[in-house]
Design a protein around this nucleic acid. Structure first.
Length: 699
DNA sequence: CATTTATAAATTTTT
DNA sequence: TTTATAAATG
């Protein structure tokens, strides 16, 4: 393949001079081809551990080194951490700081940036608030209650379920009827009422000047089609690079296509064997149909694995063998032989936890730091038992995925106080703030809201005083018990208000609203002091956000990935273990990986067994899990486990080994943990209890 | 009207 | 675990 550029690229120049730029060193021929590719559409199909990140970073460095304008390069990644890492590596490779100026981030964060600039064109005002998943569910809950649905005696879907339906429709761009029939069959009977809720929710969002995650994508797409803003946006970037392309949904694929419409320079990187986000509308179809959408596309396959030992790769390939990949690739490793993966059958969850801890400590003894090890699982609560055992043994860890720091009520309280400042039309934030003082319940809250015009005032309406101004200017009518907190709130808001750059630093605003919390929380929460300590952690996150709106958007779009991001490593230890859902482990690697709960029903999850597509996705998850390991892989299967999340019942499930692993048993060393003789059952009889009480009575 | 207490129910993955 | 409702209490 030749780059059909008229001028010499930096690569060619350096080649003539006999020197090689840094970004080309250590690349294999396929990787070089991808880095050196000219400006047409390029799809890099990169198997697990094939140097995808290195290749992408090198390509960015090459573009910048060739003199492309960094501000006109857009790099879309799955997480912002991935964007940061890529940009950092590109900077190192290119040897100058220009790469820092490229546009990098997730689809959602880039959408916020564009919407802050051009939102007016589609009727979204600059101070808009981004709702996270639980905010969206709460607003839906308000709408549902206003419509009188979910009243007693009726079984109406939970607000979280409705939120999931809304999101699915928006992301997959498929009709509600189809979504309900295929994804939420138990809600089909409520279709008509759901439709009313959905429309009410949409109107409420617009009235409050708030957008949810899905709006961000749809509004960005609408802007690209806008008569005046559209052409501007479509010509804004000379090069667009998209990572994890197998996990884009229809809207995102459209966005990309429209954005590169003028220049045609698109680089997409992905692996259809690792598509694991179909639940949110993503489809590997987009990577498979790449050449249809971009007929002039070049496709490069990276199948040389630099990550795993042959033994681990043998397992990974075995899991992937049954997948119907269009881009079939059997990974070949460059690494020498290592230890065989272990497959451990455990009597129950406790035995599994104990065993995994022992394996982890043993690996550490052999020189694999905790930071080089990870425990992976299908769902957040699969780690519960292990977390107990880790705590008992004082093994420090951080857990990724399933974390709900931002969902904690008190963090939401703080965010709500700041949100009202940004967007006084934000009903949801008001509702939360007004719930803060003692003595105010639903009735008073409604009364106050009506008095200062919450819900009726629209953002940008200068003919009426905003609820915020009214709240600050004059005391509101409320029970005496609530007054101190309300006054403190008005004080904090007065001190924090300000236009754009004139506003006090975010840390200072946080301190101000923290004073309100100091007053209100002790009456609200039994563990107020622990929650107040979180204020400092939140404050530590403000660095870098000059503006409140930026801070709030960052908080919702990129919540701290792990507890450790906020609290620092437990016990001030340097070394800690990673626990992660398989989803959150995408793109990462560790020397030793321990996959737990690899039982049928957990992996694959029994909720995904409805159709072949569901099972295939679970298989890809299993593939992602085992292919994270570089040197050592342990897979454990508890034979007895809780089926439900809230382990109050005795509903045990007797499991079998995952169907993905059973055919691969000969690729593992097998062992058992917690056999029947391990802990002899103690015989406890009623007579013994009676005797015990007898003793107490007679003493 | 707000709060406390009791009771029942809930389907996983995330920007 | 949280979330929603009902009934009792303040």
């Amino acid at each position: 393949m030749t780059a059909s550029t008229a001028t010499m690229t930096a690569v060619e120049r350096d080649a003539t001079l006999g020197t090689e730029p840094a970004w080309l060193s250590d690349l294999n021929p396929q990787q070089r081809q991808a880095v050196d590719h000219g400006s047409g559409p390029l799809l890099i199909v990169a198997g697990a551990g094939t140097g995808k990140t290195r290749t992408l970073a090198a390509r960015v460095a090459r573009l910048v080194g060739d003199g492309q304008v960094p501000e006109r390069i857009l790099l879309l990644t799955f997480t912002r951490r991935a964007a940061r890492e890529l940009v950092q590596r590109a900077r190192t490779l290119s040897g100058n700081d220009d790469a820092r100026r490229i546009w990098g981030g997730t689809f959602h964060s880039v959408a916020v940036r564009i919407l802050r600039q051009h939102g007016d064109a589609v009727g979204i005002r600059g101070g808009f608030t981004v709702l996270d998943e639980s905010d969206a569910a709460d607003l839906i809950g308000l709408v549902r209650d206003d419509l009188g649905l979910g009243e007693k005696g009726r079984r109406f879907p939970r607000k979280e379920t409705i939120a999931a339906i809304v999101s699915r429709v928006a992301n997959a761009l498929e009709p509600l009827s189809v979504t309900l029939a295929e994804q939420f069959p138990w809600c089909v009977a409520d279709a008509d009422d759901l439709r009313r809720v959905l429309k009410g929710y949409r109107d409420r969002k617009r009235a409050n000047n708030v957008v949810d995650f899905d709006d961000l994508l749809l509004l960005w797409r609408a802007l690209l089609d806008h008569p005046t803003v559209g052409p501007q946006l479509r010509g804004q970037f000379d090069h667009v690079l998209v990572d994890e392309y197998q996990d884009v949904n229809t809207v995102q694929a459209d966005l990309v296509q429209r954005t590169v419409a003028v220049t045609g320079s698109l680089t997409a990187v992905g692996d259809d064997a690792q598509a694991i986000y179909s639940f949110r509308g993503a489809s590997a179809r987009h990577i498979l149909d790449f050449a249809d959408r971009y007929p002039s596309a070049t496709i490069t396959v990276l199948d040389r694995n630099y990550r795993s030992t042959p033994e681990i790769l043998h397992v990974a390939n075995g899991v992937a063998d049954d997948l119907e990949e269009a881009h079939r690739k059997t990974l070949r490793t460059t690494r020498p032989s290592g230890v065989r993966p272990r497959l451990v059958t455990c009597r129950d969850e406790v035995a599994q936890s104990v065993h995994v801890c022992e394996v982890i400590l043993d690996a550490r003894e052999r020189g694999i730091d905790l930071r080089d090890q990870a425990v992976l699982f299908r769902t957040g609560h699969h780690a519960d038992g292990l977390e107990l055992e880790l705590a008992r043994r004082d093994i420090p860890y951080v857990k990724y995925g399933g974390l709900k720091f931002l969902d904690r009520a008190h963090i939401k309280d703080v965010a709500a106080m700041l949100r009202v400042l940004d967007n006084p039309a934000d009903e949801l934030a008001w509702a939360r703030v007004l719930r803060l003082p003692e003595g105010i319940g639903p009735a008073w809250s409604r009364r106050i809201a009506a008095a200062i015009g919450i819900g009726s005032w629209r953002a940008g309406d200068d003919s009426a005083t905003s609820p915020l101004a009214r709240f600050i200017d004059a005391p509101v009518n409320a029970p005496p018990a609530a007054q101190p907190v309300l006054e403190s709130l008005a004080r904090a808001w007065r001190a924090s208000i300000g236009e754009e750059l004139a506003q006090p630093p975010v840390a200072e605003q946080l301190r101000q609203v923290g004073e309100v919390a100091r007053l209100a929380w002790p009456l609200r929460y039994p563990d107020a002091s622990a929650r107040l300590a979180d204020l400092d952690r939140l404050s530590a996150l403000t660095s870098g956000s000059a503006l409140r709106s930026r801070f709030l958007a960052d908080l919702t779009l990129e919540p701290p990935a792990a507890i450790g991001d906020l609290a620092g490593p437990p016990h001030l230890d340097d070394d800690w273990l990673t626990l992660s859902t398989i989803h959150s482990a995408k793109g990462l690697e560790w020397r030793a990986v321990h996959v737990i709960h690899a039982a049928d029903g957990n992996l694959p999850s029994d909720m995904a067994l409805r159709d072949k597509e569901g099972i295939d996705e679970e298989r890809r998850l299993a593939y992602v899990a085992v292919s994270r390991a570089k040197d050592e892989l342990t897979v454990s299967v508890p034979l007895r486990f809780h089926r439900r999340r809230y382990g109050l019942d005795d509903d045990f499930h007797h499991g079998q080994m995952s169907r993905f692993l059973t055919p691969l048993r000969d690729r593992f060393d097998e062992a058992a943990a917690g056999g029947p003789d391990d802990e002899p059952e103690q015989q406890v009889t009623a007579a013994a209890v009676d005797a015990l009480l007898d003793d107490l009575w007679d003493a």
